[in-house]
Simulated assay, not measured.
Amino acid sequence: MKKQLQETVLELIVQKGLKFTIDDIAAKQGISKRTVYEHFDSKQHLIETIVDDAIEEVKQREQEIFHKKELSYKQKLTAVLSIVPSGLSFGDTVLLEQMKRFAPNEWIKIDELIQNGWQTVQKVIERGIKNGEFRPLHVPSVIQLLRGVSMAIFDPDYHTHNVNSLEKNVATMVDVIMHGLINEEE
């Protein structure tokens, strides 16, 4: 039942942002509010659980990619940098802004991941340098560059002026990081 409630909340977030209510959840599930409260203490608890699950998904997917022996380090780096949580549409401009304003503790968790969740990326880059796939660059500087780009892409203020989805913005970021700006065909 908990997973069904979380899925319903995700649907409501897509429709209403964070302005959904416990009544909305109960009505959509065809259950009483009391049943919702048997599984989650509050709307905040629901949001917290969804954000925690999304962060855990990112970390798990990073590890799965990192341990795939059939992938080159270039493929691993591309895949890890391209991860966007499947459950939550963090790319929705309204949701990003609402998370920062109405769920500040959850926004802090997301921001913490963006600021400090670079261990797997660092290992991929270091091993890619060691085996010759990547140029020998100062890895802490590369991580700082990636951190800055990610912070900018996840910034709700950026999304108020940009019509692209988060997925499209992340894909552009990864493309520029992996291939640069120079058109090699010329």
Rank of each mutant, 00 (worst) to 15 (best):
3 K>D: 05
4 Q>A: 13
8 T>P: 07
8 T>Y: 04
9 V>C: 09
10 L>W: 06
16 K>S: 06
17 G>Q: 12
20 F>N: 05
27 A>T: 02
28 K>R: 15
33 K>W: 01
34 R>C: 01
34 R>M: 01
36 V>Y: 00
39 H>K: 03
39 H>A: 00
40 F>Q: 05
44 Q>A: 11
46 L>Y: 03
47 I>W: 14
49 T>N: 10
50 I>A: 12
57 E>G: 10
61 R>E: 12
65 I>G: 05
70 E>L: 01
71 L>V: 04
72 S>Y: 11
82 S>I: 04
83 I>E: 10
86 S>D: 09
88 L>N: 07
90 F>S: 11
91 G>D: 09
92 D>M: 08
96 L>S: 11
100 K>T: 01
105 N>H: 10
107 W>A: 05
112 E>Q: 10
117 G>R: 12
118 W>E: 00
124 V>Y: 13
125 I>R: 08
125 I>D: 06
127 R>G: 07
129 I>H: 10
131 N>T: 15
132 G>F: 10
135 R>D: 10
140 P>F: 11
141 S>K: 15
146 L>P: 06
151 M>S: 14
152 A>I: 04
153 I>W: 11
154 F>D: 02
157 D>K: 12
158 Y>G: 03
158 Y>Q: 03
164 N>D: 11
169 N>G: 03
169 N>H: 02
169 N>D: 09
170 V>P: 02
170 V>H: 06
172 T>E: 13
173 M>R: 04
174 V>D: 08
177 I>R: 01
